[in-house]
């Protein structure tokens, strides 16, 4: 039916065809200007031989582990507490959600200049109390965590609002009954609230895995993957291969690796969403 045609055409031209070309690109040697030469699996060999690739992959795994726990727990706690109060719900929701609507580049600069900056940021202000901390973005041991913290700040409130919306669908009579039986906060969470919103939590966890392998903006703006590639993730590595080193083959190979991780999560995602589509 032709109603589908415009959206589908744009999507095929912008996403599907270039994606297929990327698959082909992973098997050629190309600098972006001269003629591509078939290279077999050379790009994958080069990629695996680069020590930065394995550390970037490990950083993505760490990033995923962090985002599967911290923001989801913070979101669940905030959402469940919101459910307990009557006054101020809208206010807290707006405030928690606010960081999620602000441009990542702007957030990155605010943290870089106003929090992590030893001259003029919160870190510098702590000097008054004798804490002589350095810029955490400038040290290989702390750079990744410092970048991830910014994304965590940007992200947890969104989780809180999503989980709160889910909690509100839980049958109130069930909650009241549990309360009358003397259930405390933890029992209420364990036996009523968390089981009731399980589908939402599962969906958010799947999406978290997908997003964690796509993470780009904060790393690129805050550290460019440095210092000494310590905060490099797969997406920034791929971008660097392509637009800084002009090696399209390895860039495409890394993109395929990211897609592979995404694909596994996507299969779960499509399954979950399809149940919704059937309805």
């Amino acid at each position: 039916m032709w109603f589908l045609f415009p959206a589908l055409l744009i999507n095929l031209l912008i996403i599907l065809i270039p994606a297929l070309l990327t698959v082909a690109m992973a098997f050629v040697s190309w600098d972006g200007t001269s003629d591509p030469v078939f290279a077999g699996f050379d790009n994958f060999r080069a990629m695996f031989a680069d020590p930065v690739f394995s550390s970037a992959l490990l950083n993505n795994v760490k990033w995923t582990a962090l985002f599967l726990t911290v923001p989801i727990i913070m979101g669940l706690v905030a959402a469940s507490l919101l459910l307990m109060v009557r006054k101020g719900r809208t206010f807290f929701q707006i405030v928690y959600f606010l960081p999620a609507i602000i441009a990542t580049v702007v957030i990155a600069r605010v943290w870089q200049g106003m929090i992590y900056n030893p001259d003029g940021g919160l870190i510098g202000w702590l000097h008054i109390f004798g804490f002589h901390l350095d810029d955490p973005l400038a040290h290989p041991s702390t750079a990744l965590l410092a970048v991830a913290s910014v994304d965590l700040w940007h992200w947890w409130g969104f989780m809180a609002v999503i989980f709160f919306a889910a909690f509100r669908q839980v049958d109130r009579a069930q909650i009241e009954a549990a309360r009358l039986d003397g259930a405390g906060y933890f029992q209420l969470m364990r036996y009523i609230l968390l089981p009731a919103i399980r589908p939402t939590i599962v969906l958010m966890m799947i999406m978290t895995v997908i997003w964690s392998f796509l993470a780009f903006d904060f790393v690129y703006v805050l550290t460019q993957g440095g210092p000494a590639f310590s905060s490099e993730v797969l997406s920034t590595l791929s971008y660097r291969y392509a637009f800084y080193n002009f090696t399209m083959g390895p860039a495409a190979a890394v993109a395929l690796v990211i897609s592979l991780f995404g694909l596994v999560a996507t299969i779960f995602y499509v399954r979950v969403q399809q149940q919704e589509l059937e309805s």
Partner: peptide, 23 residues
Amino acid sequence: SRWIAVYFLATTTLPIQLYLFPL
């Protein structure tokens, strides 16, 4: 149409790097 829906759904989860360079 079901497969088109699944296709659209799948593209939302692709990394931009998968189509950025040829694009």
